[in-house]
Design a protein around this nucleic acid. Structure first.
Lengths: 120, 120
DNA sequence: CAGTATCCGCCGAGATACTG
DNA sequence: CAGTATCTCGGCGGATACTG
């Protein structure tokens, strides 16, 4: 079986590789927001509940470094920075949508809903 | 999408929920192995490279507890235990397949050696 | 407004030892 | 053969403070 190395990290299968690119707590929520619109940093910050300043910045940096989003800085005062999804990012949206729908199915099966705040 | 709680843990979106069920380093490789055959513990251990005894056991316990696999113990000496995928597990296979193919695409884009991959 | 820089707790995961 | 029980470590992600 095909172990392989990317950026000094060893992977055991393609799923791991994919999840290292678009997984984690915040990358999918971020890409999801950008799927049909350009957003400024502050707009995303307001739009994504619970995300911290540090995580939003670091995750955007990684997504940019790996070509899922582009970052454009406008030299104005106060600063303005816009983030746009790329073609590669758009391909990810397809997968995110699949996983998201699967998650919704599972939630139904497990009897959890958005209104259900009961611990179980 | 509002927050919700399951098993005393808070989730921010359906993707997180799905990934908590079938994510992590080992659950998908395990389910993948069971997709078209019943396997004994030792067979899986041999079949999944790098997995440790502890992780295989604990991940199988979780998958069983959440209905993705069933566990059958045969009261013989030496012990024999068989694991079988359930309908819920089979549904997960669909998603795993999607993510896996996406991972292969990404690997190509990033120029990662993709000669051989997971098994069948 | 957008972005760094620290400090730190938690949890997934590996190594190892022991059991029926 | 299959399964527990500890100990340990690294890294993700949160809290907070400071900057142009």
């Amino acid at each position: 079986m095909p172990d392989f190395i990317f950026n000094s990290k060893i992977y055991y299968n393609p799923v791991e590789f994919a999840m290292d690119r678009i997984g984690g707590t915040w990358k999918m929520p971020i890409l999801w927001r950008l799927k049909d619109k350009v957003l400024r940093y502050g707009e995303m910050k307001k739009d994504i509940p619970h995300i911290t300043h540090k995580m939003l910045t670091s995750q955007l940096r990684e997504l940019e470094a790996e070509g899922f989003v582009t970052r454009e800085v406008f030299p104005v005062v106060p600063p303005k920075v816009e983030y746009t999804i790329t073609d590669r990012g758009r391909k990810a949206i397809t997968i995110i949508d699949t996983i998201r729908n699967y998650g919704l199915d599972l939630m139904k099966e497990f009897g959890v809903g958005a209104e259900n705040t009961d611990k179980k």
